Simulated scan of single mutants.
Amino acid sequence: MSTEPPVRGQPRSDAGSLPEAPSGPVLVIPSLHPGEDFPEIVRRTRDLGLREVVVIDDGSGAAYAHIFAAIGAIDGCTVLTHSVNRGKGAALKTALRYCLSRPEVTGIVTADSDGQHLPQDIRRVAAELAEAERAELRAAVLGIRDFTLPDLPLRSRLGNKATTAVITALFGRVVRDTQTGLRAFSRGLFEELLALDGERFDYEMNVLIYLLQQRLPFRGVVISTVYHDRGNTVSHFRPVRDSMIVYRGIVVQAVRFALSSFTAAVVDLVTFTAVIDYAFGGTSALRGVAVATLTARLVSGLVNYEVNRHIVFASDHPRGISMLRYLLLALGIVAASAVGTSVLGTLLAGHVVWAKVIVDSALFVASYLVQKRWVFAPGRAGPKSLPRLRDHTPNS
């Protein structure tokens, strides 16, 4: 069990300090090895009117202690300290636990420590959260950067485009900035966010996926796109290693789906063999083959359904509805395979086997997406929903 990190710089209310609202959102800034200008960045954000600024020193070490001490001395700022580096996700969870223990905190706004998030954008995201909370207790807001600008670092542009394509394919919703660090969440989501897996950069992706899986219609606010240089060298994100961490959950689910399909194929073959051998004496007569085939498909289909429902997609969707949808999908795939193989086989000058391989490979991917987005899709988590995602043009 993890212990609560030390707290430095508890907010004070002595004469001369900034006025503090009785309740409201808190700005959360995880930090690792910040620059010397970090206290000034925090000081500027303290003027935004938020209840408090919570900075997490994620194991930066003694060399950076003076920076966090300067932040702790700012009125209305709190510093939470990890003795060792535990990752951005762990830092965000530490802040969530701290805020959850404070009943006056109505929500959090998260920002990065490198100055890429401008004070006016933080203010606007916080204002959007306050408006969203009037319609929904479980509200979320994302700051959306403009990735069409010509001077963006190449790794940021390509990384976001790739992840956007994957998210769109898997969940059927376009999220134009999947890796934004400027986000806001209402108090109603704190416990759910704390329960999610991930300790490093994967945590933020897990949060986004959770919002999509639960069909929580989060809002978007277009923000300024700021990088210190074309290589974005200030960032601690390691493109190869951290991208693997970010995509780990998606890849694991896809691998489980493939293994589930392989298991179902083995069950199908074993069942067919057993029925044709023991019930029909190994005959190749149409009646025996038909009965064996139908029995094998029924058994393997039930196995595949249960494995996908409980292990692959961990769905809580009502069994009756998901089973009916699964059956409709299975029938549709059989029909599409037959028609597609026939048509493509004709186009390939009679190479029916190759046509079947191509068609069934495409249907395998389609089956995964349909099962994820329809058959085993979770029901809407909350009793009400937020308005559609809205954009605001950044102030110039």
Rank of each mutant, 00 (worst) to 15 (best):
F38V: 01
H236M: 10
H236R: 15
I71L: 08
N232M: 08
I245N: 10
A290L: 15
L216W: 05
G320M: 09
L269E: 11
L50H: 05
A290C: 08
L152C: 00
K372R: 15
S322M: 00
G49N: 04
E104I: 09
D197N: 14
N308Q: 09
P239C: 08
L170I: 06
L154F: 12
G61R: 07
R102T: 06
A362G: 14
T295N: 01
P153W: 06
D229Y: 03
A69K: 13
Q116M: 07
A296P: 01
Y210K: 13
A274I: 14
F171G: 00
D57L: 08
K372F: 09
S83H: 14
S13M: 10
G281S: 04
I144K: 01
L216N: 01
I67Y: 06
V291W: 07
R200S: 12
S385P: 10
R230A: 15
E104Y: 07
G188Y: 10
G143F: 11
A169P: 04
V251K: 07
R325F: 00
R200W: 03
S156G: 06
D360L: 05
A258V: 05
N232V: 02
S31C: 00
S284N: 12
L182V: 00
R183G: 03
E4Q: 14
P39I: 09
G345D: 01
A126L: 00
L92A: 10
G24E: 09
A132L: 03
E20M: 15
S243D: 07
Q179K: 11
G59M: 05
G231S: 14
S243T: 15
L327Q: 04
I108S: 02
R173Y: 11
P30N: 05
F257H: 06
R241K: 15
P378V: 04
P318H: 12
L170M: 08
N395S: 14
F376G: 11
F313L: 06
S260E: 10
G188E: 04
L96H: 04
A62I: 12
R157A: 14
E136I: 09
F68D: 04
A91M: 08
L328R: 08
L208M: 13
S13N: 12
L118I: 01
R256W: 13
L96Y: 04
I333F: 01
G115A: 10
L328K: 11
A62T: 13
G231C: 08
A338M: 11
V55A: 03
F201P: 01
R51N: 07
A139F: 00
K372D: 05
G35H: 08
I167F: 13
N304P: 02
Y64N: 10
A111F: 03
T163G: 09
S300M: 10
G281N: 03
D268V: 03
L347C: 11
I29D: 01
A366K: 04
T263L: 14
E52K: 02
S337H: 04
V312C: 07
I122R: 03
S322K: 02
G72A: 15
L193E: 08
Y98H: 15
